[in-house]
Amino acid sequence: MRSVREALAASGRAPLLSVLGVVTIAFSIFAFGLFGLVAINIRKALEQVEQRVEVRAFVSDSTEIESVAAAMKDIGEFPEVLRVDYVSKEQALARARKEMGEFADVFEAGVLPASIEVHLRPGRQDPATVKSVADRVKTYDFIDDVRYGEEWVAKLYSLRTIATVAGIALGVAFAAVAIIIIGATIRMTVLARAKEISIMRLVGATDMFIRLPFLIDGLVKGVCGGLLALVFVWIADRIVNEYVIQTVFFDRQMIFLGIVGGAFMGVLGSLVSVGRHLRRI
C-alpha cells in the first residue's frame, strides 16, 4: 500500500512529467498498434484468397458415379483435405454460364466435363501440399486432367511468406522501439528522483522497497498508455473504415493482450531503468 501511495505521490509532485510519460508510451504503443492492425488486415485478406485454393479433377465421360463416389470418399480421408465436392456436367454448365454473363450462350450442353473439387484445410495450401494432393488425385484411372493454378498458388504462397517475414521483422522493430521509448520515459522519472533514491539507500531502505513504487508507476503508465493507444488506434480504424476500405479491428483477446503488453513494457522499462540506476549509485 505504501508503494502505491508513494507512486501516486511522486506522480502528483511531477504531474507534467507523468502526463508526458503516459502520452509518450501511448504514441509508441499506437505506432505498434497501427502496424498490428495493418498486419491482421493483410493476413485476413490473404486468408480469404487462400480459401479459394482448390484442386479440380476432371472426370471421364464414361465413368460410373459409384467409382467417383468411392474415389471422393478416399480423397476426403487425405489429412490435407477439408472437403470434396462433385460438380456434374449440368452444374458445370450452369456455373460457367453464370460466370460468363452475356457470353453465356457460347456454351452448349454437355461441352463441359464433370469434375471433383478438392478443398484443402487452412494452413495446408502451400504449393508442395497442393501438388502432392493433385498428383495423388491424378492416379485414379477415370481422371482425365487435374488443375490447381500451379503458378497462382506459388505466387500466393510467396506473397504470404513475404508478408509473414516482413510482419515479424517490422513487429519486432516496432516493439523494440516501443520498449526503448518506454524505458527512456521511465528513466526520466528515475533521474528526476535520483537524489531521493540515493537518500533512501543511505538511510537503509531495501532495493525492493525503492524499486516497488517505480514498478507500480511503470505498470500504471503502461496500462494508461495502452488504453490511450487503443483509443487512438480505434479512431484511426474508424477513419479508414469511413473513407478508405473496410477493415477488421482487434478482437477482445488482442485488445487485452495489447493492454497487458503495455503494462509489461512499463514494468520492464522501470525494472531496467531503476536497476541500472541502483547499480550506478
Binding site: K195, S198, R201, L202, V203, G204, D207
Partner: peptide, 15 residues
C-alpha cells in the same frame, strides 16, 4: 540495508 539503519550518515552538501 539493515546495517545502514544503525549508521547515521551526514554529507557536506546536506542531501
Amino acid at each position: 540495508s539493515r546495517l545502514r539503519r544503525r549508521i547515521g550518515i551526514v554529507f557536506q552538501d546536506f542531501r
